[in-house]
Write a protein that binds this DNA or RNA. Structure first.
Lengths: 156, 156
DNA sequence: TTATGAAACTTCAAGCTTGAAATAATTTGC
DNA sequence: GCAAATTATTTCAAGCTTGAAGTTTCATAA
C-alpha cells in the first residue's frame, strides 16, 4: 500500500488501514537505511545478515527448512543466500549421517567473528534510527505489536 | 534482522532492537499474506498494487520520479513495474509538451475500475488481519509510529 | 521386500529491487 | 548562443524472492 498523507480517508476500518500504511512505511524506511549501511560499511546485504543472525543464535546449526520457517521466506530463497555465504566462507553445510536429505548449516569461525562485528554496528544503528522512541515507549509498542501478531500468525 | 524469541537479550538499547525485530516480523507477515491473496484472487502483485494505489490518489497523473519518491523505491524499479502495468492496459504514459524528458503516468479507465475493486478487498483484508487491534489502539500505535518516523526520515 | 507417499532440498522461470552507468532534454553561466 | 552542469528517465548486471516442478532420501505398510 504505502498510501499517503493527503486524502486522509475516514470510515469503519480506516484507522487499521492507516496503521498498516504507517507500519509498512516505517519498516521500509528503516530497512532501506540498514540495507544501505550494510552495503557501504560491510559490503553485505540484509538477507545475508538475517541468515547469519539466525545461525548466530544456533551454534549447533540449523536445517535449511528451519531457516526458511524462522526467516519467513521460501525454501528456494534460503538456498541461494546460503550458497553465497558458503562461497564467502562465512557459513558451512555439514552433511548428516542420520538423514542424508538434510544438512546442518552453521557459521564458520570466520562467519561468527564477522557477524559479531556487524551485529554490534547494527544494534547501534537501530538505537540511532529509533532514537526518539524512549525505551519505555519501545516496550509498550512491542507489546502492542505482539498482541496483533498472535491474532493470525501461523495460519497460512 | 528478524531475530527471535529465544535468548531475549537485555542491556541498553535492547528494547529498541526488540521493537525493530517485532516491527519487521509483523510487517513481513502481513505483507506475505497480502501478496498471496493478491496473487490468488486478482492475479496481481503488491508492487503493482502500490503503484496503482499511488496513481489512484492522483487523477492528474504522476511523474516517474514522484512515484519513486512516494513509494520509497528506486527509479529503475518503477520503470519496470509501470512497463508491466502499461502492457496490461491498466496504466498509460503521456508525453508532455513542456518537458520532453518526463511523462505523466496515470491509470487508464480500466485501471481505475480494476483498482477500485482490488482496493476494497485489500481494505477488508487489513481489517481482518489487524482484527484484534481496536480502532482506538490503532490510532495510538499510528501516533507512536509517526513520532519516530519524523525523527530521521528524509535524511538520506 | 517394495511401492507409495511424504519430507528436505534444489532448480527454475518470472518478477522485484538496487545502485551505477548511459541517454536525452533542460537549465545555467559565461 | 553555447558549453557545462543538472534533471528525468531508462538500461543493465547482480542479487533477492516466490511458487511450482524436480530430485533424492526416508518412512510406512501391504
Amino acid at each position: 500500500m504505502v498510501a499517503g498523507p493527503l486524502p486522509t480517508p475516514s470510515g469503519p476500518g480506516k484507522d487499521r488501514l492507516r496503521l498498516w500504511v504507517r507500519l509498512l512505511r516505517a519498516s521500509r524506511s528503516i530497512e532501506a537505511e540498514l540495507r544501505e549501511r550494510l552495503r557501504q560499511e560491510f559490503n553485505t546485504t540484509l538477507p545475508r545478515f538475517d541468515v547469519m543472525a539466525a545461525l548466530y543464535r544456533a551454534p549447533e546449526g540449523m536445517l535449511m527448512s528451519d531457516l526458511s520457517r524462522f526467516l519467513l521466506v521460501s525454501n528456494g530463497n534460503v538456498t541461494g543466500i546460503v550458497d553465497r555465504l558458503v562461497s564467502e566462507g562465512l557459513v558451512a553445510r555439514a552433511r548428516r549421517n542420520g538423514d542424508r536429505r538434510t544438512s546442518m548449516v552453521r557459521l564458520t569461525e570466520e562467519g561468527s567473528k564477522t557477524f559479531a562485528v556487524i551485529a554490534a554496528a547494527h544494534e547501534s544503528w537501530i538505537g540511532e534510527l529509533l532514537g526518539n522512541v524512549s525505551e519505555d515507549e519501545a516496550r509498550r509498542l512491542t507489546g502492542m505489536l505482539n498482541s496483533f501478531r498472535s491474532n493470525w500468525e501461523g495460519r497460512e
